[in-house]
Design a protein around this nucleic acid. Structure first.
Lengths: 245, 245
DNA sequence: ATCTCTAGTATGTTCGTACATACCTACATA
DNA sequence: TATGTAGGTATGTACGAACATACTAGAGAT
């Protein structure tokens, strides 16, 4: 890797350093949490003063791209979007863990069902064809209070079956085992009265719940999964981060 | 006015200077656009180095509280910066139109209110400071049935006031008139019982509604708008499209 | 084995200094 | 009158230096 700072460039040194550090921060090792080179090291390495390094670092820290710790060092800011929309590593369990809540599967069922009209349309298959359905009830580790009930349907092309381990993060599993990369999704969110879902979530039928359906596709717009979720609104807030930069 | 910097305080000098300048910026003459004392003047006056003054000033500039101009001086951020751009980003009205539903404002109110704790924290301003609040009730053109009630609060730095036209797409207006480009947003979505909002939306208090809060920022992560929406869940489904390709 | 102190390390704060660059004004020239 | 240029001013960039403070790890004591 070339660490080049042009001292005769019209661009200020601290800007050059800033850009360079931006690239650094994208590297896997730093993305994974390794400490960046120390300020004095960078200073010597790039041939600029420590102040200049700090000037650049301040900017990056301000943008939230890096965190500093006195006496320790600086590193890339931990990526902690509550809900990145679609991360290959998206996982409800991990997400809740970042919010400080440990969750586990209170129940889990996998079975083959016939595709209904809506599902057949999305998957572009014949109505009635067999698809794998995954149902999960997730709740708190402490007290086993239900939070959300998921239902997922997978396109037959993928090849998932009852043998698969659905206790690990789903999208990571799909990518590793079946080479399927989820890239796009379209979501609809609505508020409902719990009704029949009340019993499962252990709330009153007249309580409001958050209902979400998600259509998941790969880079080629091919359907992968249809997923619905019924969230207890007293225990969960749906968060979305959007960046159009 | 007392300009006191304690050199033996546990608080870093640049923090003390920063707080002092915050107070300065509130004074009418600076609020009205007068140039702040020059860096060297402040440096001599307060008995700290120019670097320390700049450290504080950087912070304030970053928060959008003051603008600097090389060769001229620094002053409080103008209420109405000028800039031009185009291409807006989101409009409820246009979005509904795409769904085939014509909507209009059933009511609209603009007034100045004091920032509460939460708002002050997001905007990074003092609690109680005046901010512009925009309230809108949107509904169908046919039948005038309410669909959603919006409440928006704008960062004072932007400079919007009661004179502005809030009947046109908001983000387009902000960009054209004030040069503010909304780039990032973070949303929280939840389901609620309508309660007090029922009357406004013409539903029963026990009906579920969709509640959304949105934090809107520019490319530099500076806060622009805080926006909440209460959606009738029988008339509206929240849709999100995500593409990580 | 566990606790405590200490030396080492990395960032935080602050100073002083020097020169670069953008801006404004006023004077001089065509 | 119009224009261009020179000097003054204020912020921008960059360096070097010193000490403060928070944290880590290892040596030494109990």
């Amino acid at each position: 890797m070339k660490l080049e700072i042009k001292h005769d460039s019209p661009l200020p040194l601290h800007v050059q350093v800033e850009e360079l550090m931006r690239k650094l921060l994208e590297q896997p090792r730093y993305r994974d949490g390794a400490l960046l080179p120390k300020e004095v090291e960078l200073s010597n390495l790039l041939g600029v003063s420590r102040n200049t390094i700090r000037q650049a670092t301040n900017k990056l820290e301000n943008e939230g791209l890096l965190v500093r710790k006195k006496g320790v060092g600086s590193k890339a800011a931990p990526k902690k979007p509550l809900y990145t929309g679609l991360d290959h590593w998206y996982s409800f369990t991990n997400e809740m863990r970042e919010r400080g809540i440990e969750v586990l599967n209170l129940s889990l069922e996998v079975r083959w069902v016939q595709a209904d009209k809506k599902l057949a349309a999305f998957f572009n298959i014949e109505e009635g064809r067999k698809v794998l359905k995954l149902s999960k009830l997730k709740g708190t580790k402490e007290g086993l209070q239900p939070i959300v009930y998921f239902e997922s349907y997978f396109h037959p092309r993928i090849g998932v079956d009852e043998q698969d381990d659905f206790n690990i993060p789903l999208y990571a599993m799909l990518e590793k085992k079946y080479g399927v990369r989820v890239v796009k999704s379209s979501e609809n969110i609505s508020a409902l009265m719990a009704g029949k879902m009340a019993k499962r979530l252990q709330i009153k039928p007249e309580d409001p719940i958050l209902y979400r359906e998600r259509f998941v596709m790969d880079a080629g717009d091919r359907p992968i999964e249809y997923n619905t979720g019924y969230y207890r609104s007293d225990r969960f807030i749906y968060s979305i981060n959007i960046n159009k930069a």
